[in-house]
């Protein structure tokens, strides 16, 4: 319990650190939101008036604390570009990106764990060798490229989905999840290949350990040994890797959203960075950071349940 409290403390400190970084990074990089907002109608007077209106003339440290206290109160500010409250702007979009990432992660689990175990069980066989070639191939293709190929093959040629025709959840739940299948798969494929490779090699290594021989000598079948003994030890590095993978999937979603024209958080984040829409950028990055750190902490805590020998200190 003490451990968990300590972890939560560190968690909050990390978030604070991130909020400082996010805020001050945009003070350092060049670019003024007012120029973009006024475009070619800008004059020095208009810029000055707008800066005053947005409160940009106050010292950065004051603006930071103002932003932080508002953020903690749940007020994410107003988007410069859209003149809309940030919370209203992002609420629907976070759900879309979360759905895409979650679906993609589920696909990774469903595809990679059975294949990894099977390949470890039949290691060095001909099917294992053949699947290794495919594995290496899929691993090396970036998701957005798979995405482009999917839109072409499954979208335009086979007409399994209509590229660009994203269906909101409010319109049709099945249509929404249906549209996400191919983008999620595009992200999941290379990640699954990596997990398969890791799981297989981790299990094969464990299988040559002494305790495995002991287990066999006690009359356990091969499957029993794999399930009861090898898996427990082999899965630890895989869990760590899965946590990293989930983070990568969130980042991957941001890119794949562009390819499939999915109106998630990624497109908004990119356009807000380009437009220096600071309230939006700060909110999105902070929320993504919370998600990323949480995933890592959940992975940390889950070790204990996989291997009770691991003690928290």
């Amino acid at each position: 319990m003490k451990y968990i409290l300590k972890k939560i403390g560190i968690f909050l400190l990390t978030l604070l650190g991130i909020s400082v970084l996010v805020f001050f990074a945009f003070q350092v990089i060049p670019g003024d939101p007012t120029t973009r907002m006024l475009g070619t109608t800008a004059t020095p007077e208009k810029i000055a008036a707008l800066r005053e209106q947005l409160g940009l003339n106050d010292p950065a440290i004051i603006r930071y604390f103002r932003w932080l206290t508002d953020f903690l109160k749940g007020d994410f500010g107003t988007s410069y570009s859209y003149n809309m409250p940030v919370s209203k702007l992002i609420s629907g979009k976070i759900a879309i990106t979360a759905a895409l990432s979650g679906m993609s992660f589920a696909m990774v689990l469903v595809m990679s764990i059975p294949i990894g175990i099977l390949r470890a069980r039949f290691a060095h066989s001909i099917p294992d060798r053949i699947s290794m070639i495919f594995n290496q191939l899929i691993m090396s293709v970036p998701p957005f490229f798979i995405g482009i190929i999917f839109t072409y093959v499954f979208g335009l040629v086979l007409k399994l989905f209509t590229p660009g025709d994203f269906i909101p959840h409010s319109e049709s739940a099945s249509g929404f999840w249906g549209y996400l299948v191919f983008p999620a798969l595009a992200i999941a494929l290379p990640k699954s290949a990596m997990v398969v490779k890791l799981l297989r090699s981790s299990m094969v290594r464990e299988m040559s350990e002494d305790y495995v021989r002991t287990a066999y000598s006690r009359g356990n079948s091969r499957w029993q040994v794999l399930r009861r003994h090898v898996m427990r030890n082999a899965i630890i590095p895989v869990v760590t890797f899965l946590a990293v993978t989930l983070v990568d999937i969130i980042a991957g979603s941001i890119i794949i959203e562009q390819v499939f024209a999915i109106p998630g958080i990624g497109r908004l984040l990119l356009s807000s960075i380009i437009g220096r829409d600071l309230p939006v950028v700060q909110t999105i990055i902070t929320i993504i950071s919370i998600a990323v750190i949480s995933v890592n902490y959940i992975a940390d805590i889950s070790y204990k349940y996989i291997d009770p020998r691991i003690r928290f200190r």
């Binding site: 839109t151 007409k159 209509t162 590229p163 660009g164 025709d165 390819v259 024209a261 497109r267």
Partner: peptide
Amino acid sequence: IDNAETLVMSLKSGV
């Protein structure tokens, strides 16, 4: 649709 390829594909697919 800010991706030029997707824009064309969406026209082709009738979206």
